[in-house]
Simulated scan of single mutants.
Amino acid sequence: MHTRSTSPAARSSVPAGVVSGMGAGALWGLVFLAPVLTPDFSPWLLSAGRYLCFGLMAFALLASRGRVLLKRASLGQWGNLAWLALTGNTLYYVLLAAAVQNAGIATVSLVMGFLPVLVSLAGQRDPGAVSLRRLLPSLLLCVAGAICIGWQALQPQLQPQQRLQHLFGLACAVTALMSWTAYAVGNARALARLQDMSAHDWNLLTGVATGVQGLLLTMPALLLDQHPHAGHDWLRLGGVSLVVAILASILGNSLWNRMSRLLPLTLVGQMILFETLFAMAYGLMWARRWPHPLEALALVLVITSVLASLSAHRTSATTRATG
């Protein structure tokens, strides 16, 4: 047996990645409030508005050097960007907005809380992955926390028509979970293959691809919208779309991409728990109430889950360094 020292850069990558993941979760948690702030607009319009703003801002930020980046991206990368834009942005947000409007934030938080389990399972063969045996305590805590978050939502006293609406929202949340899992895994692997492009530039190119999809979505979204809206309603939709695009799509995605380059995929999955944590906190602040006992327990379990995952990765890294 011999001992190999771990470089300072390697030792510092995990804390920096975790901080970036926390920042991304804090910003992404805001998207759960957007459907609540604009309840009269369809999920299609919410997604189109948000990603039109994202695409325009990404295009503006790329204006000075966009031609170079556009040429640098290969045809295969553009195909990958289109797929990531669909699974992680356009389709995902349509499903998320529909889920929140029909089933509420608690149920959506419950379902999205299972994302770390799926991402960790998908990343088992990636470099730096930690075995399921070491991740098991963290994953069990994650599941327990998610169940606590949505326990009351899973046992509502609903009328038959309300129950159908709730089940539709739950189905949308599950589909959103699958869509974002595909994005998280695909994006982390795409970033690992990048050599001559920064994570921020990759995010902006994703924004351009998403903006094109948002533009294509606008006309059918307007045709499908059957509700009349006053001028101030459209202003509110525009304001919410712009704020969410800046905070979640530009800043949040940049932090997430930075984190994805610093952390192994199995730990990347754990970081999405911060979105669940902040979404729940924002929902409570919006409702102007303290968490119920189960909700408070869920927050403790979520935080403990992330700490357990960090401990598992630290132990694994030490074993590899001394093995």
Results as ranks from 00 to 15, higher is better:
A190H: 10
V185M: 10
A188M: 01
Q165N: 08
W151V: 06
A176H: 09
V208W: 06
L167M: 14
A173C: 08
V185G: 07
V174G: 02
V212E: 09
G150Q: 12
W180Q: 10
T210F: 07
A153N: 10
A176M: 10
Q165L: 13
Q152N: 13
P156G: 00
V212G: 06
L215F: 11
L194H: 05
Q162D: 14
A184C: 10
P160S: 09
H200W: 14
G186Y: 13
S179E: 08
W180T: 08
T175W: 13
L164G: 04
G186M: 11
L194E: 14
R189K: 12
A182R: 08
D196C: 00
A199F: 03
F168I: 12
Q161N: 11
H200C: 03
Y183Q: 02
N203M: 14
N187A: 09
D201H: 07
D201W: 03
A171R: 12
A176I: 08
L204W: 13
Q152R: 13
R193V: 04
Q162H: 08
H200S: 10
A209I: 03
G214A: 05
Q162W: 07
Q155H: 15
A171S: 15
V174Y: 07
A192V: 01
L204H: 05
A199Q: 12
A153I: 07
A199T: 10
W202S: 03
G214I: 04
N203Q: 15
Q152W: 07
L205A: 06
A209D: 07
Q213H: 02
G186W: 12
L164F: 11
A209V: 07
P160E: 13
Q152V: 00
G150F: 09
H166Q: 15
D201K: 04
M197W: 04
V185K: 10
T210H: 02
L177G: 05
L204V: 02
